[in-house]
Design a binder for these strands. Structure first.
Lengths: 204, 204
DNA sequence: GGGGGCATCGACCGATCGGTTGATGCCGGG
DNA sequence: CCCGGCATCAACCGATCGGTCGATGCCCCC
């Protein structure tokens, strides 16, 4: 018997998930939560948590991180709509056992929960590809931490000079970072870099 | 008896929706579709179509527009996660009878479907606000059509000169548009305008 | 130990952008 | 009928950005 906690801010999605597992006697849905805070409060009685990421009040990523501390035995299976870098990577880092997209068929979801219960890692194909590329030499288009910092500030309208001041480096350094960013994103100016970054989900 | 067609690319959401209406004898779910093309094929036997917007193959907006022609009697109730300008407005223009967000509680959804069946317009509060603001003097932060065109090109890295060439106007005009855009978005340069536009959902 | 990625810095120059001012024409609502 | 918003264009200037060359130090992995 696998005890499940369903965490999603959409009642309809919660209904759908409940329905998927209701028919199977191996599963028992022990609770539902609409955000991260509720999830933590209800995590005690669960083996596996099905966790959405984008929620009001407390995000899924934060909830996962806290669950690592308060309920380390609970496996967290992320189930979300988005497969962008800025969603996937933080969730994995925070300690998710698996990462599925909501367009997964029901059977795959059930298999994934069983696997997560056993502590195995489950990843949607597109998410898996994203992680693979992350391991074997960061693929072209992957920005370094510093580069993301710079780009985020640029997206807010910060001039190079001001970015330099805020990051405690010289303006020349910022320009170098930007040139690298242009290279990686295949663009020619800062505005396009911001646009491309949003398209790729590199910026939240 | 209201005959329903459920259109959503996530099996789990379809399950949830089916579950909401399964208990009520007033409703009959006549079919499910995972994208716009399937929706059109199955629309014949339905009174109300519950339509997601972002789907593979054919988007919800396009499907709504085509349904207007092929099955004008069918009411379309948009049910989606997003309430940004670039989602809401095209859907309304295309001919949706209502627009609900997926975080709506079940009861509200049921009421909305009944209302849509009677031809009444149903809007989520946040969507309603968006439309109100659209009517009573475009609120600060609403870009004109031309301004959106310019900004979209800028977001792709197009220089002012090139934007001017593509839109068949002078470079001076583009600069003026951009200054207006900066004003409306409360920013000071093109990169920030692109970032702000994405944050507000003005760019897809 | 060397190569490669990352981060840092400097200097130079031309191109572009941002800001300003001023102006015209069109259209729709009060 | 006139005002306001939208779209168009022009000229100018200073500030910034983009591109290029070169350079150093660090750290990790092979």
């Amino acid at each position: 018997m696998i005890r499940l906690l369903i965490v999603d801010d959409h009642p309809i999605v919660r209904d759908g998930l409940r329905g998927v597992f209701a028919g199977d006697p191996d599963f028992e849905v022990t609770g539902e939560a609409a955000n991260g805070a509720e999830a933590i409060a209800l995590a005690a009685g669960a083996d596996v948590v099905l966790m959405d990421l984008r929620m009001p009040e407390m995000s899924g990523v934060e909830a996962i991180a806290r669950l690592r501390d308060t309920h380390p035995a609970v496996r967290v299976l992320v189930l979300t709509t988005f497969d962008t870098d800025s969603d996937v990577l933080p969730a994995i880092e925070a300690g998710a056992t698996g990462y599925l997209l909501k367009d997964a068929p029901r059977e795959e979801l059930i298999r994934a929960v069983r696997a997560a219960y056993r502590g195995e890692s489950v990843l949607s194909p597109s998410v898996a590809g994203r992680l693979m590329g992350r391991v074997r030499g960061p693929s072209p288009g992957t920005l370094s931490k510093r580069e993301r910092e710079v780009l985020a500030l640029v997206a807010d309208g910060t001039t190079n000079r001001e970015v330099a001041r805020r990051l405690f480096v010289s303006e020349a350094t910022i320009k170098t970072h930007l040139l690298h960013i242009y290279d990686k994103l295949g663009v020619r100016d800062r505005a396009a870099a911001v646009g491309e970054a949003y398209k790729r989900g590199l910026l939240p």
